[in-house]
C-alpha cells in the first residue's frame, strides 16, 4: 500500500513542472513595451523621436511610387492606405488561396509586386520591404490583433504552436521555456518578455535599424545554438502565425521601439 502511494507521489512530483508550465492566461498577457525602461518607452511614444517613423515616412513615399513593368504604384490599386490598409496587418500572416498556405505581410508585398506590378521581389530585411510593411502596419496602430481567426489557418497555427513548444539547439530550449514559463525574470541582465509580436516591424536599438519578426525569431534560434530557419521558411511563417494568434486582441504598436 505504502509502496503504491510512494509511486503515485513520485509520479505527481515528476509531472508537476509540466503542469505548471503552460500558456499565459489572456488577461496576464503583456506587450514587450511594459518590460522596457522609461527612456525607451518615451522614445516609442513620441513619433518625432521614434526612429521607426523614419521608415514609415519612406514607406509612404514608396506607396505612391510606380514600380515594375506594369508601371503601377501600390496606391493605384489600394488607394489611400489610411483607410484601405487599416487593420490589415493585424490579421497577418493570412491564408493565401493560390498558394494554399499562410503568407506574411512582407511576402504579400512581394506577391503584389510579382503579380500586379511585374516588379522584382524585394529581398528580405531590405530597407524598402521594411519601410513598406512598417507603413502598412502603422495604419493598424491600436487595432486589435485577429490573425489566425481564419479556420483554414488552423493546421498552420497548430504547427507553429508545436514549434514553439519543441526544444531545439545545443541549449535544448523551447520558446515556451523562456517566454511562457520565465518571463519577468532576466537573461544576462535583459528582461525576458512574453514574446508578444505587437509592434513588428520594430526598431531595435541593438540592431540600429528596423527589423521583422522573422529576424527576431532567427536571433532567438541562434541564441539557443540552433540552426535558424531561412527567411520565408514555412516553419518561420507558422511560428509567426502562432505568435500573432497567441496575442489575439492585443493592440498593434507598429513601429515599436525595443532595446
Amino acid at each position: 500500500m505504502n509502496f503504491w502511494r510512494a509511486i503515485v507521489l513520485a509520479a505527481l512530483a515528476a509531472t508537476a513542472p509540466a503542469l505548471l508550465a503552460g500558456e499565459i492566461p489572456p488577461d496576464a498577457r503583456r506587450s514587450g513595451y511594459s518590460f522596457m525602461g522609461p527612456d525607451t518607452r518615451a522614445m516609442q511614444d513620441d513619433d518625432s523621436s521614434n526612429p521607426g517613423m523614419l521608415f514609415v515616412l519612406d514607406g509612404e513615399a514608396l506607396w505612391t511610387k510606380k514600380a515594375g513593368s506594369a508601371h503601377k504604384a501600390c496606391a493605384d490599386c489600394h488607394g489611400d492606405a489610411r483607410s484601405s490598409m487599416k487593420g490589415i496587418a493585424a490579421r497577418y500572416p493570412a491564408f493565401d488561396k493560390a498558394l494554399a498556405r499562410p503568407v506574411t505581410l512582407d511576402q504579400r508585398i512581394n506577391l503584389c509586386r510579382a503579380n500586379h506590378q511585374q516588379a522584382a521581389p524585394l529581398p528580405y530585411e531590405s530597407r524598402d520591404v521594411l519601410a513598406l510593411s512598417a507603413f502598412v502596419a502603422h495604419q493598424s496602430r491600436g487595432v486589435a490583433i485577429t490573425a489566425g481567426d481564419d479556420p483554414q489557418l488552423k493546421p498552420f497555427v497548430e504547427q507553429g504552436r508545436n514549434l514553439f513548444m519543441q526544444r531545439e539547439g545545443q541549449l535544448n530550449l523551447a520558446c515556451t521555456n523562456c517566454h511562457d514559463d520565465n518571463f519577468e525574470k532576466r537573461l544576462a541582465g535583459s528582461p525576458i518578455t512574453q514574446a508578444q509580436p505587437t509592434g513588428y516591424p520594430l526598431y531595435r536599438l541593438e540592431w540600429q535599424t528596423l527589423g521583422s519578426l522573422e529576424r527576431r525569431l532567427r536571433s532567438c534560434m541562434t541564441g539557443v545554438r540552433a540552426q535558424a530557419y531561412d527567411y520565408g521558411a514555412p516553419e518561420l511563417v507558422a511560428l509567426e502565425l502562432y505568435l500573432m494568434s497567441r496575442a489575439r486582441g492585443m493592440p498593434m504598436e507598429t513601429p515599436a521601439v525595443r532595446p
Binding site: 513619433d47 518625432s48 523621436s49 517613423m53 523614419l54 521608415f55 515616412l57 519612406d58 513615399a61
Partner: peptide, 8 residues
Amino acid sequence: MAALINVP
C-alpha cells in the same frame, strides 16, 4: 533622406 522635425 527622411527627417522628422519638431518645431512648435
